[in-house]
Design a protein around this nucleic acid. Sequence first.
DNA 1: CTGAAAGCGCTTACAG
DNA 2: CTGAAAGCGCTTACAG
Lengths: 339, 339
Amino acid sequence: VPNQLHVTITDIAKRAGVSKTTVSRVLNNKPDVDGTTRERILTIIQETGYVPQVLAVGLATGRTGLIGLLVPSLSRTYSLEVIQGVAEGVEESEYELVLYTTSLVEKNQELFTQALSRSLTDGLVVLLPRDGTHYLTGLRDSHFPVVLIDHRGVSTGLPCVTASNHRGAYEATHYLIGLGHRQIGFLTGILDFGCSRDRLEGYQRALKEADLAATPELVKQGDFTEISGVTRAQELLTRTPPPTAIFCSNDEMALGALKAIRNAGLRVPEDISVIGFDDVPIAAQTTPALTTVKQPLRAMGRKAVEMVFCQIEGKPLDLFEVELQTELVLRESCQSPRR
Amino acid sequence: VPNQLHVTITDIAKRAGVSKTTVSRVLNNKPDVDGTTRERILTIIQETGYVPQVLAVGLATGRTGLIGLLVPSLSRTYSLEVIQGVAEGVEESEYELVLYTTSLVEKNQELFTQALSRSLTDGLVVLLPRDGTHYLTGLRDSHFPVVLIDHRGVSTGLPCVTASNHRGAYEATHYLIGLGHRQIGFLTGILDFGCSRDRLEGYQRALKEADLAATPELVKQGDFTEISGVTRAQELLTRTPPPTAIFCSNDEMALGALKAIRNAGLRVPEDISVIGFDDVPIAAQTTPALTTVKQPLRAMGRKAVEMVFCQIEGKPLDLFEVELQTELVLRESCQSPRR
DNA sequence: CTGAAAGCGCTTACAG
DNA sequence: CTGAAAGCGCTTACAG
């Protein structure tokens, strides 16, 4: 199957009247090439538009120039922000990004093993799927460069980057208390996730420090979906009196809470204050605009690639577990309680 | 550099006491292998967890199993929906997805050429960047499998999939007219884009069919950003009387229009009706929820990969330019005018 | 039904 | 400063 457009290193070598070795040397910026020779070869490369085939280079060197990113879902804004950070980081390098999504992983439980043994990628950034912990085993021992984002609070033995979940939740709760709230409802995320537990603990610590009783009935277990936000908030609203504020473990649940409150004929923030977590783009668009704890998702993505690159280059990681700071973003959904 | 985990076809061949050729045959489900031999090899493959290296396979066969996706931006919800569709389509196949973003392209104007000559991918789905038309030249002649999504109205000579922009805009305008609106403002997208022109024409045709004068002052040129929606809508609001409805060429501009109208002390839909285009997730979340023309973005993504696969397999494309149908999604932002 | 050999396009010691 | 040769891990005619 002759490919007319296909220029190879052999073609270049022939045209330049040198060996492939020499062409390879100038291609890889190796020293010990005569200046004139180098120029000549460079010119020919330019003219022909020759670019080395990644496959061949990869086979010969054992490196592919590809970074893999595993995300559980493409539909959650949360993931998208992280993806963007990762994409930015990868783009600034010589690497390219290969995207894996969870359904693929489910299709083949051994994706990771595969990715490794097939050595398609030189490194992996992993946003763990819901039940992802069992993948970790395979990853741990292989010395494959991998970084987890928002690990599940499990002690994975793998490098990871997280947000300051505990601190973020603490600050949000503290802010609510400062506003005068005493009955603060809390919607948890999936409690299998370390981040969910951290947020819950941050909330509890803030209450404790303010000498407020931790009322178990004020804590409802959600699962990060908007619908769970609706139903759990509704439960909270049946209390008499209802809480004067609801802190949700992510923005999607906060959207749900907003709806539940509105449906109950109450207003935000006049009757009930609401705080979310994440600061996904939609948080600024709701009515009222949502006060929320911003997770530096993009930065987390960038940091993760950076750490993957470190490992690829064999440099030591300055920090094995990196925690990036959250930030309380004040908007319109909170005010002092009127009762 | 000995790699302890790394099993190759040679290892399998040795353990099975056969040649690599035979192993390759069972790997690729070729006929003419003795049943017992096949079983034995399969068992060994199973035991060792052997998976062929894509790089080596790729080099030998000339195919990589990778599909490239070029998107101009990862931050626009619009792109994300398309990406998701593409990802779904790719996941259902044996292929994997490589993501290119525009900044990468800008970094190297010859990305496409590169992608081709480096033959990293077997096919490309392209969401053209703003000034993307000049990439097309390089693509056209190479017989590389590529499909454009939402081409720029340029006659590219390349297969593409679009939404029924003209029809969608026509229907939305027609709906507004049916509601009783006579003064309907229109915010265009970037008019370099074919889709923008199509939407404008759809709007104009509906007016014409209803024997309504096309008032040039009612048409304002936007650029798909929310901020342009704000400013262009403001301009419309300075008219006396202001239009009773504003049709925006995408949802982001519609969000802007919503804000401008609210800032002017007017209400949607009581004072002014608003319609968007795209139906990105946020459209359902605004207050009032946005009536909009839904673009089947996911489906467009899926269709595009499908067409790439067709080309890869050498099958003829049943349709060179595929137009997927838009759909008017009625929500809360429109009603009959009161004046 | 099976295997030896060449080849895919590159890189890398090694020798000069 | 330069080149011949081997090798990366696979597939594919070709021969038996």
